[in-house]
Computed example of a mutant assay.
Amino acid sequence: MRIQVNVYSAPWSSQSSVDALTFLEEALRQGYEISRVFFFFDGVYHGLSSQSPASDETNFLTQWQKIRDNDVELLLCIAASANRGLLDDAEAKRYDKEHPTIANCFSLTGLGQWATGFHDSDHIITFK
């Protein structure tokens, strides 16, 4: 069974980020195939490379890297990311910015990848 997971909320705004990670860890443990995790709206903030959580808070970047290590694509909506200042090397150059601001385990992509999930996944799970 192939699953696409969509994350729409910022890492610090609700419990849904922890719920998404918990769901993904368990799905992978049980052998489900995760086709991709697509971050949209404020969810793109999960990819911000400069996150520095307090020592007693969840380090989302570390957790997402573990998910990525299972060959799961972590995709940030390029438009939502650019609107919020999350840029890869190419987008930083395009917008004449000095540094990229997304973590290496994430990739920028268009809504086509999000829509592809409706075709090539058996289930789409959304965390808002």
Results as ranks from 00 to 15, higher is better:
A82H: 13
F60R: 04
R94K: 14
Q51P: 02
A79Q: 14
L75G: 04
E98Q: 14
R84L: 05
K93S: 12
Y45F: 15
A54S: 09
A79K: 09
E57H: 08
A90K: 11
K97P: 04
T58H: 11
N59T: 03
D89F: 10
L61D: 01
E57P: 01
Y95P: 00
D56K: 03
D89I: 09
L74K: 02
D96W: 00
S50T: 09
H99P: 01
L87P: 01
T101A: 03
S52C: 09
P53W: 06
R84W: 04
L86T: 04
S55K: 10
S50Y: 10
A79Y: 10
E73M: 13
D69A: 14
Y95R: 12
L48E: 13
T62W: 08
D56A: 06
F60E: 03
S50D: 13
A80C: 14
R68C: 11
T101L: 01
G47F: 02
S55E: 09
Q63G: 05
S49M: 12
D88T: 00
K97Y: 13
L87C: 04
Q51D: 08
A90E: 13
L76R: 04
D96C: 08
K97D: 08
C77A: 02
R84S: 07
K66H: 14
V72C: 04
D71F: 14
H46D: 00
A54C: 03
E91A: 15
D71H: 15
E57Q: 15
A90C: 03
E91W: 15
C77M: 01
A79L: 12
W64K: 01
L86S: 05
N70V: 04
E91D: 11
R84E: 06
G47D: 03
R68S: 14
E73W: 06
N70A: 12
E91G: 14
E73P: 11
K66W: 05
P53E: 05
L86W: 07
S55I: 10
A54P: 03
E91V: 05
C77N: 05
Y95Q: 10
R84A: 08
A92Q: 01
A80T: 07
T62R: 14
L75V: 09
L86D: 00
A82Q: 10
E98C: 06
K66V: 08
S50E: 11
S81E: 06
L75T: 05
L86A: 04
K66M: 09
W64Q: 02
H46Y: 05
Q65P: 01
D56E: 11
Q63N: 11
K97S: 12
A90M: 07
T58L: 15
D69C: 03
S50A: 10
S49I: 09
P53F: 05
D89C: 06
Q63A: 15
F60S: 05
S52Y: 00
